[in-house]
Simulated scan of single mutants.
Amino acid sequence: MARIAGVNIPTNKRVTIALRYIHGIGPAKAAEICEKAGITPERRVNELSDSEVLQIRETIDSDYMVEGDLRRDVAVNIKRLMDQGCYRGLRHRRGLPVRGQRTHTNARTRKGPAKPIAGKKK
């Protein structure tokens, strides 16, 4: 099992798919990493040599912000918005949708399970 950026990536999957298990790498970046490292995207992870895995690891470390650094950066950005007291920061603070979605109905992912209102009977 190859370990890249602190994540055990699955061995039986194609390289482009396996790289997506790393937080901060999606389809486009996975293809770009394979291209920079000179690895065909159709190859499986278990077919890669140690030097190729090392090359992928070095490419990711030098060119991309992934895993802990990315999570920390996002958390700092959210905290900055909350400290400023701007609209987006207030929405984060209250646990409501930030990007303009409706909250009259839906928004249960951000708001949590529905709370019953006392005395509301039909």
Rank of each mutant, 00 (worst) to 15 (best):
G38D: 08
E32W: 05
D83A: 14
E67I: 11
E35P: 14
L54H: 01
A28N: 06
R20H: 11
L90V: 03
P113S: 07
P97R: 06
R91Q: 07
Q55A: 10
V53N: 13
Q101E: 13
A114R: 13
D73Q: 04
E35M: 15
E58I: 01
I60E: 01
A30R: 05
R102H: 11
R3Y: 14
H23N: 13
K115F: 08
G95N: 05
K120I: 10
L48Y: 00
G100P: 14
P97I: 08
L19S: 10
I56M: 02
G95T: 10
A114F: 05
A114M: 15
V74D: 01
C86M: 04
I17D: 14
C34T: 01
K13M: 12
T105N: 02
M82C: 05
K36A: 07
R93T: 03
Q84R: 12
I117C: 03
E67A: 01
A75I: 06
R71L: 01
L96E: 13
G95P: 09
T40L: 04
G24K: 15
R110P: 00
G6Y: 12
R108S: 04
V7W: 09
N8M: 11
E58R: 11
A30W: 06
E35A: 15
V15W: 11
G85P: 03
K13I: 07
I25D: 12
N106M: 13
I117K: 14
A30L: 02
L70M: 12
S62R: 15
L96M: 12
E58L: 10
A2M: 07
L54K: 05
G100A: 08
K120A: 11
H104K: 06
K121G: 00
G119Y: 03
V74Q: 03
N8R: 08
R102F: 05
S62A: 12
E58H: 09
N46W: 00
E52I: 05
